[in-house]
Design a protein around this nucleic acid. Structure first.
Lengths: 106, 106
DNA sequence: TCAAACCTTGACGCCAGTGTCAAGGTCAAG
DNA sequence: CTTGACCTTGACACTGGCGTCAAGGTTTGA
């Protein structure tokens, strides 16, 4: 989507056609982005955690990481943990309710 | 918020003033609703799991629950689990990245 | 060569959730 | 009684993520 590109989530090279050329890695990243959007994250949150989203473990960028970036990542990690807690709590409430229903239905 | 009321997430009685009168329970529910909205759920998803959100454990409604409702709850529980998995996976990726950064910084 | 299929950009509209503002009703204090 | 604070409704606008459509350029194939 051009939308993701405009938001700085992915990049594309242009071939002579002026057509967008998506790398294989970018294609995979789109998959992850859609997952995260589907999980309720905003594009800004996703952009914040982009440095962690490279699939091959080795060519990850470890240089040029500012303190600001680290702080942002820690914040985002904590927000995710918060979110996970809320969701897990409510999922468990649903599960408990369902088992209780089943118990009462004999 | 009138918005939640219009969406069928909460109810309010009207006093003679025509002012809205929110019960204590409704007030607590608003808290939960905001949590869930903040966690990325839609109002429709929240409405689907409303039956599980009563805080006192006992006066929960167990009668008049249709098969449809049960199916919806199971679906919503699975969607939540899915979401949780995605978020946990990415949070762990962030955490791993951060520890790796720290390791390389000696 | 020419038409169909694809790409480009830009503009517009849609839906969800929220905020705000105007016009009026209600209430408590002075 | 009047003023100011609060409530009501309805309308409007905004942000985010997305879809679509028009106008034009490129490529492919008959």
């Amino acid at each position: 989507m051009r939308f993701y590109e405009a938001k700085g989530l992915i990049t594309s090279t242009r071939s002579a056609n002026n057509y967008r050329d998506y790398s294989e890695a970018t294609l995979g990243r789109v998959q992850q982005i859609r997952e995260l959007l589907g999980a309720g994250l905003s594009t800004q949150a996703i952009r914040a955690i982009l440095p962690c989203l490279e699939s091959p473990r080795d060519p990850i960028v470890f240089e040029g990481v500012t303190f600001e970036t680290v702080r942002a990542l820690e914040r985002e990690r904590d927000r995710l943990t918060e979110r996970i807690d809320v969701l897990a709590r409510n999922r468990d409430a649903i599960a408990d309710y369902l088992t209780e229903l089943q118990r009462r239905a004999n």
